[in-house]
Design a protein around this nucleic acid. Structure first.
Lengths: 185, 185
DNA sequence: ACCTGAACACCGTTCAAGT
DNA sequence: ACCTGAACACCGTTCAAGT
């Protein structure tokens, strides 16, 4: 019953994983249904049995990353008991971790329609971790929320500046400064 | 000698202005040589007499904006004598000004190759204004540079968060807080 | 259930040929 | 100097037809 003589049938997941690799290499704009179909030695038409359109594919790819990546990473950080240590770990993640290519896409192409939803969910989760940690450190709820937003905006802008070679030379702001900013009364 | 019977000859500038309007409406990805040619009732081929390629067109469009916009705006701010007042004016520009569509493109598509150069120049100019103002306010040079970077990263991230409807609800950080952050000893 | 093949529209780029 | 027209490649999307 397989029409792909000799080749295995393709699932939605196969396409999504191939798209995720394409995003890794060239961002969202590097995802071309046509090229993926050629790689699979199949037709573009067959793609449209599995997905409604290209945006659908990109969303599926990023959700794959979201499931396998974000939740796990946050879990590790959350397992730290002392809230101040946890806060330092969060900030260190941002300033020291070698940068994940998908993360870069998520930040720098966050405005692309198929990326926006995943970006929002990941960001909400991270803001929540920041806020609750700041509350444990001793800040009132409202102030914690405000500083979490501040810290996350800082993270986003920091990485955007660093991505531009002409600007990277002027940065970055030191990590200690950010910690002080977050925890000062 | 005009081959465009009845129609005026097109200049590089005509194309660049049309492209700038297209960016205003739909960002960099909204610029299509094909569509512009149709609007001008000419052929795509004629476009390539004026420009090397599409990126060339986009760069020209943004440079138009850069000349007519950035330098002027910075000039107004720089004319304020008192450095603390000037600093407040700069921050107010960011947090209160109705958002210019081209500015949004500059920030959210800063990583697109034809945008990167303009983004870098505009950012350098703004960082310089911030730093020199902070020095006048009384900070040492190195600390001023660090805080200028911090403030600008904050600006970029702030706007990126605000652009996402799901996230806009949680912000924004108050302007007073940022001023305090910049000027505290 | 899953795929093929052909069609259509849209777009970037090149280039010989026109005026 | 500036433009036309045709060609080519690449891509997204649809859909009737196949197995």
């Amino acid at each position: 019953m397989a029409t792909r003589s000799g080749k295995p049938l393709l699932s939605r997941d196969d396409w999504a994983r191939a798209a995720l690799r394409a995003i890794e290499r060239g961002g969202v704009k590097g995802v071309a249904v046509d090229r993926l179909a050629k790689e699979f030695e199949t037709t573009r038409g067959s793609f449209y049995w599995h997905f409604h359109d290209r945006d659908d594919l990109i969303a599926a790819a990023l959700e794959l990353w979201e499931r396998e990546n974000t939740t796990d990473r946050l879990g590790v950080v959350l397992s730290i008991d002392d809230p101040l240590q946890r806060l330092k770990a969060v900030v260190a993640e941002v300033y020291e971790r070698p940068v994940d290519e998908i993360e870069v896409t998520l930040v720098s192409e966050a405005h692309e329609p198929p990326v926006a939803a995943v970006f929002a969910r990941v960001t909400q989760a991270r803001l929540d971790v920041l806020r609750s940690t700041l509350v444990e450190v001793g800040l009132p709820e409202a102030e914690a929320e405000r500083r979490a937003w501040l810290a996350y905006a800082l993270y986003l802008g920091h990485h955007q500046l660093l991505r531009n070679p002409d600007l990277a030379a002027r940065g970055p702001a030191s990590m200690q400064f950010v910690i002080r900013l977050l925890t000062s009364p």
